[in-house]
Structures are given as structure tokens and as C-alpha cells.
């Protein structure tokens, strides 16, 4: 394989990895705070694509307006899902919450079929992002370079939010211990809602960029990216934001490289994530950057 070709695969892998990382953060933040796999996160990602699609195709808003509106509406959807499906079950057994989460996920998926129709739709292209640029012998969509940059900006923003603001402090406190956080004056319910909003905003950014990179949207498209990003979060160590980013990049680059070096295994592309997951769980059950927790008797 020539160096140019390798670089081309690598940039593709990195931009796919960035998208995985953005969506994986939503899973890991919710898990960190609620100890809950937010199965509906993949569907929130899917909905953000439809919001953006309708903004451009029906209301013909300029793309930056559309994306902003889509991100805000997705954030509202994320908070709504939390209110309806998770809040009433805060003190229930884990499996009940998980069933409710999966129920919410199927609800959104089928709601999308009812409202938007089951046929695939073509995501509108924005020339500024989809034009092809050449660097040396490598030709790439401009988007492939913008995605990692946008991801890094979002990550810096997230880091600032969590480490430097009062809301972030509250989130860190709630993830350690709900009751203690409440005694310290943190509004636990509000913090959880904010967490869902932030996770959904990142998923929406990821979704919109995903739509431009793979411009076909269907109501069932949230499932596989959702599962993969959850795996990315687990591989990195769930509950840990840097872990989710690391896991996302490993998954994205690994997946592209698998196809690049072993074209015979293309059919097993989706299996790569699951195999990686199982290997990591067996070697280091709490993920690459996860903390080991001792069990109290």
C-alpha cells in the first residue's frame, strides 16, 4: 500500500472516529451520572439528522441556521426523553430502567417511520463542505478535514464546561454520589437534565456531520452507529469522557484500517466493533481508562 493511500485511509478513519467520539460522549456522560445505558441515544442522533434535513429541504433555511435549530431541537428532545422515560424510574431496578430505555428507543424509531416515512431520504449537501480538495496526491472531501477540527473545538468547549463552570462542578458531584451532591446544594434533577441536553447537542453535531459524510437517512440508521458508539464508550472506560474520545478514535481508525488491509473481511466490518468490545472487556473489564472499583461486602 502506498503512503498516499495509507494517509487517505488514515484521514478517513480519523474523521469517522471523531464522529464516533462525539456520539460516544453522550453515552458516557449519562452512564457516569445515572449508571444507565441510554439506549435512545442512537435514535436521538437519528432524529437530529431529520431535523436538519427538514430545515434545509422544507423550510429552506440557510445551512448554519438549520444546523443551529436542529441542534437546539435535538437537545430539547434529549431532555424530553429523560423526563418521560427515565425520571419516573429513578429508584427502580436496573433492568426495568433498561427496558424503558430500549422502549424509548423503539418509540422514537417508529415515530420517525410514522412522521418521516420509511423510505431513505437524501441529506442535502452543502457545497462548502462536500467539495473535493487535493493535498499532494491525496484527494479528500473538505468535510473529512473539518470534522476532526469541529470535534476538537467541541471537546475543548466541553472540557471548559465540565472543569470550570458551576454546572460542570455539579455534574462531577452528582456522578460521584447523588445524595451527597444533594446535601451540598446541587440540584440533582436539573443537573441530570443538563447532562442529557449536552449529550444530545454533541450527538446532533455528530449527526449533522454524519449526514454530510454519508448522505442517506432512514429511521433505522440510529441503531448500528448507536451500538458502535456505546462500544466506543465501553472500550475507553465508561463514565470517562477522555475514554469515550479515545474509544471513538480506536474504533473509527480500526474499522477503516480493517477494510483497507483485509478487503476480504469487508462483510465483517460491523463485527469489528463487537470483537474489539469483547476482547477489551475480557482483558480490562472496566475499559482502557476506566477506574477499577473494589467491591464492598
Amino acid at each position: 500500500m502506498s503512503f498516499d493511500l495509507f494517509m487517505q485511509y488514515l484521514t478517513n478513519g480519523i474523521s469517522l472516529g471523531s464522529l464516533y467520539a462525539l456520539i460516544a460522549i453522550g453515552y458516557t456522560m449519562v452512564y457516569g451520572i445515572l449508571r444507565l445505558i441510554n439506549f435512545a441515544h442512537g435514535e436521538i442522533f437519528m432524529m437530529s439528522l431529520y431535523f436538519a434535513f427538514y430545515g434545509i429541504a422544507i423550510f429552506s433555511l440557510p445551512w448554519y441556521m438549520t444546523f443551529l435549530v436542529a441542534v437546539l431541537v435535538t437537545a430539547a428532545l434529549g431532555m424530553l426523553v429523560e423526563r418521560a422515560a427515565y425520571k419516573p424510574l429513578r429508584h427502580s431496578p436496573r433492568i426495568t430502567i433498561m427496558v424503558s430505555a430500549i422502549g424509548a428507543s423503539f418509540f422514537l424509531q417508529n415515530l420517525a417511520v410514522v412522521i418521516f416515512g420509511g423510505r431513505p431520504k437524501a441529506f442535502p449537501t452543502v457545497p462548502m463542505f462536500t467539495k473535493v480538495i487535493r493535498i499532494g496526491n491525496i484527494s479528500l472531501q473538505a468535510l473529512t478535514l473539518y470534522i476532526p477540527v469541529a470535534t476538537i473545538i467541541l471537546l475543548i468547549g466541553l472540557h471548559f464546561l465540565i472543569q470550570k463552570t458551576k454546572t460542570g462542578l455539579g455534574m462531577r458531584a452528582v456522578s460521584k454520589d447523588h445524595d451527597t451532591a444533594r446535601l451540598m446544594g446541587v440540584n440533582v434533577n436539573k443537573t441530570i437534565t443538563v447532562t442529557f441536553a449536552i449529550g444530545s447537542i454533541l450527538a446532533a453535531f455528530g449527526g449533522i456531520m454524519w449526514g454530510m459524510k454519508f448522505p442517506q437517512i432512514v429511521p433505522t440508521m440510529g441503531l448500528i452507529p448507536g451500538l458502535k458508539c456505546f462500544i466506543a464508550a465501553v472500550v475507553g472506560g465508561i463514565g470517562n469522557i477522555s475514554g469515550a474520545v479515545l474509544g471513538g478514535f480506536i474504533l473509527g481508525v480500526g474499522e477503516i484500517m480493517l477494510i483497507a488491509f483485509l478487503p476480504g473481511l469487508t462483510g465483517y466490518r460491523d463485527a469489528f466493533a463487537f470483537v474489539l468490545l469483547i476482547v477489551i472487556l475480557l482483558v480490562k473489564p472496566t475499559g482502557l481508562l476506566g477506574e477499577k472499583t473494589a467491591e464492598k461486602v
Partner: peptide, 11 residues
């Protein structure tokens, strides 16, 4: 309305 069945069911 295709899909309505599953919406009602999951609700």
C-alpha cells in the same frame, strides 16, 4: 399508517 403499530405498542 405504517409504523403506528409499533409506536402504540412501545408507548
Amino acid at each position: 399508517i405504517p409504523g403506528l403499530r409499533m409506536v402504540v405498542f412501545s408507548t
